[in-house]
Design a protein around this nucleic acid. Structure first.
Lengths: 141, 141
DNA sequence: GGGTACTATGACGTTAACGTAAACGTGATA
DNA sequence: TATCACGTTTACGTTAACGTCATAGTACCC
């Protein structure tokens, strides 16, 4: 299986296509470019063309944001995926950094479980209270 | 088991105690008060005294922040825990809201798993590359 | 080739979430 | 009672992350 001249995987996107898909403004995407988080090529008339890879990157940025990471932190994380694939030291550093991030993520998952647990408790108490109120009103009818 | 006049559970905290414990500034805690996220009583000389309940609330606020929730969103969530315990409609509304939040949390857990997965992939590729480099250098020694 | 819909580049505006500094009160302690 | 360490309010400053123009080029369609 080789690539034909017009492989569908070579598809690119305009800025507003991506903006629409991910529900952010074009300005936002350009802003990410200013901050060097993403670097699309330019096509006809100097317009930005985003590859699938660019698209995946944007997705990652937005995902990071949803977890409260700042753009600077995300830039670091992304840097990790852009390691010069030949520099041994770089690779080793990236692995260490990656381990840290993994630990962080696992921590967050744990914390979310705790939060879920808290909310379930509140819910149980509220439901209990509802039953109680019903019982009371039934006894006074 | 009843409460003695000086039950240790009645312990309160000063603002800097909490600030120290949670590693935020006093200003930050006061700011949360401005935004009505927390409402400590005042003690001697008009100083803020935080109960265990206040402390738990602060913890919740900070946890929410770590997940990228804005203070306004956190205010809403907290509102849920302060429901008037006698208003049936309020309780029902809170339950619906709680369900939404639970779904959100479960989504986030899923997304974090995906992120973890992505990072593990990157890691595997980097490690593979390391082995490859070693093999190359060994063959040219 | 004229309209219209999209895009690019500035540049300034806005908002949330604090930081920082001033000016002052309070409480324990030497 | 003077000196701290800590607290209070008020107010202005700062930064990240965009929003919102204005101005101008471009592209596709009839």
């Amino acid at each position: 299986m080789t690539k034909s001249p017009q492989d569908p995987r070579d598809r690119t996107y305009s800025i507003s296509e991506l903006a629409g898909e991910f529900d952010v403004s074009s300005r936002t995407i350009r802003f990410y470019e200013e901050k060097r988080l993403i670097s699309p090529k330019r096509g006809k008339g100097n317009q930005r063309r985003y590859t699938k890879r660019d698209r995946a990157r944007l997705k990652l940025i937005l995902r990071g944001k949803r977890f409260g990471y700042s753009l600077d932190e995300i830039a670091e994380m992304i840097g990790m995926t852009d390691v010069d694939f030949n520099e041994v030291d770089q690779i080793k550093k990236s692995l260490v950094y990656g381990e840290k991030k993994l630990a962080e993520i696992r921590n967050r998952i744990e914390e979310l479980r705790l939060l879920e647990h808290d909310l379930l408790n509140v819910k149980a108490r509220l439901e209990g209270r509802l039953v109680q109120i019903e019982a009371e009103s039934a006894s006074t009818e």
